[in-house]
Amino acid sequence: MTTEAMPLFEVFIRSKRGLDHRHVGSLHAQDHRQALEYARDTYTRRGEGVSIWVVASSDIVASQESDSASFYDPLDDKPYRHATFYKLPDAVDNM
């Protein structure tokens, strides 16, 4: 009997309260609940986290890195958006 591949889930872990959840990897599971348990078993075996998010990989919409030149505008031509653009005399420079 052949079985269908189980869906893929992305795993995000908050390592400590106060920090953002960070992507740590992915895994296959039959549903969200199982994914959460697998994520615990796979990715938090040494106390890595206090909270886990699992998201079906198919629900993630990603930008393409190859499109980055047209998709993102780093606004390099607008240096005035950075604090360092404003040269102030030393006496008042600590703001």
Partner: peptide, 13 residues
């Protein structure tokens, strides 16, 4: 925020 404050001070200066 630092950009915001510095641009304001630079106007004043």
């Amino acid at each position: 925020e630092s950009f915001h404050m510095r641009q304001g001070y630079e106007i004043m200066l």
